[in-house]
Amino acid sequence: MNVFRILGDLSHLLAMFLLLVKIWRSKSCAGISGKSQILFALVFTTRYLDLFSNFISIYNTVMKVVFLLCAYVTVYMIYWKFRKTFDIENDTFRLEFLLVPVIGLSFLVNYSYTPTEVLWTFSIYLESVAILPQLFMISKTGEAETITTHYLFFLGLYRALYLANWIWRYQTENFYDQISVVSGVVQTIFYCDFFYLYVTKVLKGKKLSLP
């Protein structure tokens, strides 16, 4: 465990927490892509299948449970509790365009051809693209609430910090995980355009709106 990993996990936790705060305080999930949130719930479900079979640490187990809970509560808020406020007309990203290649790739490029390993690989590939329906929705409506941009910033920062963690682990432990690293780089690249807008607009007190 190194500082980049801890900060990455905390950033991830803060992102999910900010999203729940936004929905709960405004009693609205306007501007949030339900499709992205379903994908994240699927990511955690398929990745943490080892929750009861592979004990790593108390920290690891607790974080997995918290992440799963946050993901499912968010989906519940969007599709049940506050579904009237859900902007379904703008959440039109075609999930099959992500799921078909990701399923195909997880069968083709994995570490071992076992059900849990293929599902773990699927979760890594899916996470790298799971934010696309959300980014697509923002580009379609041309705007995002400020708290939603904070959510996206910390969600992007989390994977960027993991990149630093992987460099650190390679240098100190000679640990590497090429599937995670390549997917993590791809995932971080998807946020670059958003990071630019966040720094140039949101941090200067302006609302994020696209021309």
Partner: peptide
């Protein structure tokens, strides 16, 4: 060490 299949990250 190629820590494949240990998956100790979140």
């Amino acid at each position: 060490k190629n820590a494949i299949s240990t998956h100790d990250e979140l």
